[in-house]
Every structure is written in C-alpha cells, then in structure tokens.
Design a protein around this nucleic acid. Sequence first.
DNA 1: CCATGAATAATTGTATACAATTATACGAAA
DNA 2: TTTCGTATAATTGTATACAATTATTCATGG
Lengths: 237, 237
Amino acid sequence: MSIKDEVSDKYSLRGRVYNRIREDILDGRYNNNDELKEIAIGEELGVSRTPVREAFRQLELEGLISIIPNKGAYVTGITVKDVKDIYMIRSKLEGLAARWAVDNITPEQMEEMEENIYLSEFHAGKNHTDQIAELDNRFHEIIYEACNSKMLENQLREYHEYVLRVRRKTLSKSGRSTKSTEEHKMIMEAIKSGDRDLAEKTANDHVINAYENMVKNGLYEAYPSDEKRNGDKNGQD
Amino acid sequence: MSIKDEVSDKYSLRGRVYNRIREDILDGRYNNNDELKEIAIGEELGVSRTPVREAFRQLELEGLISIIPNKGAYVTGITVKDVKDIYMIRSKLEGLAARWAVDNITPEQMEEMEENIYLSEFHAGKNHTDQIAELDNRFHEIIYEACNSKMLENQLREYHEYVLRVRRKTLSKSGRSTKSTEEHKMIMEAIKSGDRDLAEKTANDHVINAYENMVKNGLYEAYPSDEKRNGDKNGQD
DNA sequence: CCATGAATAATTGTATACAATTATACGAAA
DNA sequence: TTTCGTATAATTGTATACAATTATTCATGG
C-alpha cells in the first residue's frame, strides 16, 4: 500500500520539501483551501519548482492537498464527518491489529507495552499532557509493529496522521487520560493472556471511546466546516 | 485520504503516463522487481522525463512501485501474506460499508443491487465468467457508494485494485460464482430489511469466503514468492 | 583466471527555458 | 456605474540542460 518510509528520502530536495509542507499542514500552519504556489514554496526552501512539483504529487495522493489541473494546489480540509468515519474505520483496524498482535508480539514488545502503561499511569496522575500524548502514540505504535502485518501497519499509520491533525485542534481535557490508560491496560492484558477476541474488542472500544470523548470536548467547534451534501446520517451506532 | 479521482487528470501527459504504467502493472505486463527507466518509458509514450517522474512519485505512494533514491524505480510485488492481510482488512471494511449502507442506501441503489443479483443468478448458471466478474465488481461498488463515506469508499477502492491484481493471476474456477451470488443476496436482504448487524456480518463472511476459495484454487501457486522474515503466523482464525 | 580500480557510460536529481493555460487589469460600450 | 472583452501578467505543464550519482567496461596486476 503506501506511505511514509518509502517517501522519506529525507536528504533529497524533494524529500525535504515534502516533509516540510507535510509538517506545516499537519501542524495547522495553513488554513483550509490555502493555495500553495510552486515558486513561492521553492524560493522559501531555496529550491526550484521541479522537486516542489514532485512533492505536490505525493501530497495530493496522500490527500493533504488537492491539485486542480492548470490551476493550483490547495490544502484540503477534513470535515466533521470525515473525522468520525476515520475513527470508526480505525476502530475496526486497531481491533484487527490487537488480535494479530496476540499471536505475533515479541517478549520485548510486550515488555515495552507494560512499561508504557506503567509510565502512563504515573503521568496521568499528574496531568503531564505532553508525556501522555507521546506515550499514547507509542502504545499504538507498539501494537502496529506487533501485529506483524506491513499492510495493516501502513494503513494504521496513515490514519494516525489524521488523528494527530485533529488532536492538535481539540483541547485535551483532563479525565480522559486516566480512562485511556485503563483501556490500554485492558488491551495489554488481553494480548498477554492470549485472548484474541477480547483483544480485538477492547481495542475496538478504545478507539470509539476516544472518539466520543473528543466529540464531548468540542470536535464540532474545532471543525465547523462540514459539507452540506447528504448530511451526516450514518450515525445510529 | 487518497486516490484515484484526484489523480486521474487523464488529459495531461502526466496523467496519461500514470494511467498507462498503472494499467501495465495491474495487468501483469511487468514482472516483480522489473526496473522502470524514466527515459525508456518517456520515449515509449512520446513524452519527456518530467511527467514520467511525477507519475512515478504517485505510483510509489500507491505502492505499485518503489523508488530507491539515485538508483531507480522497481515494480513491487505483493506476497501471499500481503494478499491474506488485505482480504482480512477488507472483510472488516466491507462489513462497515454494508452496515452504513443500511442507513444510507437510496432506492435507486437498492434497485440496481437487486437487478445485479438477478443478472448474476442468470450468468452463474451459464458460467459466463466475464459477466460474473463484472457484476461482482459492480455489486461491491454499489455498497461503496451507498455507505455514504468518501473515506471508506476511497479506502475500499484502493484495496479493490489489489484484488483485481490477484484475481488476474488466480483462475476463477467454477462453483464459486453460484455461492458468491447467494452471499450477495444475503447481504442485500440484510440491508433491505434494515438489519445492520446482519449486513455487517454477512459482508464480513463474504470476503473471507472469497479469500478461502481463492486459496483452495491456487493462490499459493500464483504467488510463490513470499518473504522469509518472520514467517506467516498470524493465522489461527 | 580472477580481483581491483580507473575511465566511461548510463541514469537519476535538479534547475532552467519555453509553451499553454488561467488570472488580473483596465478601458470601452451600454 | 456596470459589464464585457482584450491585453497583460502570473502560474502551471512540459522539455531540455546540466550536475550528481551509480553502473559498466576494461585494462592492469596478482
């Protein structure tokens, strides 16, 4: 499938341009629908249009910008509904990853997971939001690695980018971190005990809980720009 | 996320190069690890290196080729395990799509679905493999459209490319088409009756059955080139 | 014969030049 | 004033030129 490691190539000009624009978008330094001009970006980074254009093509495929032929490249926003869909999809895929991790996790990965949770419990008690966010990311990364599927791993990483993007816009209110760590612990214990069904289910639920918490804490305020089209009606679950 | 419609741009040189190489790869006209030279491809299509390079960058992100900096672009193969993982992931996502379709399918889409199944039953009885394959694709497309999620739709389409790729290598032995149509019918009826859980479950099972059928009919002969690394052990389900 | 390494060729990476398309400015007519 | 159309500028699309890197050839020495 896709992404990331193949692209990196951090030491070519194109790679640097790609990473730079990508970061800027994910960090919210552009607004939705901002136009990216090849020359302007090239001058800013001291390169010609060629590597910029190539970077654009990749960013387009990744969905971070959209290119209209002969017109320009525009930063693409994601809607409230997109965010919801991503979380629902992630719920399923994280469940699958946790299930597969049961059979494939290494002792070292298991160890890191336990340590991760131990540290999380500490920081959750003190509201160290940066450390908590970092540990949270890492917990999921461990599962991605442990599931032993390059396909699934790549897919989940790709979605994770979007999560980071959203997280930057929604404040991380307290309360969640403790509960989140508890959920991580449940997933970990299910994996450790070899219970595939339980691992899958707890991971499913964890992602959905994270989503619901985000909604409560103002997702809709952070992303007011939903499209009108058919409305947001795939929701009853 | 990704893919396809944004890329198309069929009337630019880059778009034509992209589509051409893409088709060639998916149609199996290249072997695994074949090297793609910018100049050679450019001359073949009568264009310069610039649009070829841009097309390469997109194909790389799509996973169809892999670019090694300063060396070249190589057609990437997928392994037996990759195929399996894709089907397992698809099982979950098709289930989700069917679930969402319950709440979002339009009368027109429902009608097309019923017609699709009616025709499939006819052709399945006569072993019209081409028509059956076409109808099968279309059945899934309808669900993708009906789920009303651009995110999920794009994702499933991307995976579908891989399925087509595999299908071209594995012979479609008889027997399956009748059973497949029956399964489509079950999905359709679940959607029609508004039973979300059933729709999800029947779609889940359908994809897994398709996979198991493929294994029986020689997937492992068609894709002998699995990597050795950690072996294929995430399998007990 | 094989191994080594320098010279050469081939190929990719980047910059620039030119063509095609789209956006903008501005004046004339209603 | 507003609207329309043309001229101009700005921007993207493509081709080509040059630089940097990698592959190949082939002579030399062991």
